[in-house]
């Protein structure tokens, strides 16, 4: 993938902490999965980079993507995927709409799919995106359809106010 320059045309990077929690599916009890990490996101769904790190500053994983091709670097090495969703399947054992999530983190629907605005924010791909406290740096994305999944995000204050 092309190395991403800071002025990659997007409106700069955003960072914060995110927690993904996937409820245990009926057929695999005890298989609740979760990820919580500090993140830094550069670029957008088409071309971008996502870094996940722990509190002590140690990188957990680095993901890069461009024209649908995705690359995931972890301490175990590098893996390539032909879609962002395939990469999220690897990261979480569940195909999250990663391309859409990247745009949701910026407080906007993903342009490549239908979305419906509502008082809390908007609905897209079966997810309810709650932006009611986005200006304070809070965002929540919930999928009701099993396995129920919740993504909670706390943006670093500087990033929340454009």
């Amino acid at each position: 993938c092309a190395t991403l320059r800071d002025d990659a045309g997007s409106d700069g990077s955003i960072s914060g902490r995110l927690a993904v929690q996937i409820a245990e599916p009926a057929d695999r009890p005890g298989d609740a999965r979760n990820v919580s990490a500090q993140f830094e996101l550069r670029g957008d769904a088409a071309l971008g980079e996502l870094n996940l790190s722990g509190p002590l500053g140690n990188t957990l994983a680095q993901a890069r993507w461009q024209q649908g091709q995705a690359e995931l670097l972890t301490t175990q090495g590098t893996r390539r995927f032909d879609s962002l969703d395939a990469m999220s399947q690897e990261m979480l054992g569940e195909p999250l709409p990663l391309a859409a999530l990247i745009e949701w983190l910026r407080g906007r629907p993903w342009a490549a799919a239908v979305s419906h605005a509502n008082d809390a924010g908007f609905e897209q791909l079966g997810w309810q995106i709650d932006l009611s406290r986005y200006a304070e740096g809070w965002l929540t994305a919930r999928r009701a359809q099993p396995p129920a999944t919740t993504v909670r995000v706390r943006l670093d204050r500087s990033a929340a106010v454009p």
Partner: peptide
């Protein structure tokens, strides 16, 4: 000072 496998320095 910790430099991790990705070159991130803490």
């Amino acid at each position: 000072e910790i430099v991790d496998g990705f070159g991130q320095r803490s």
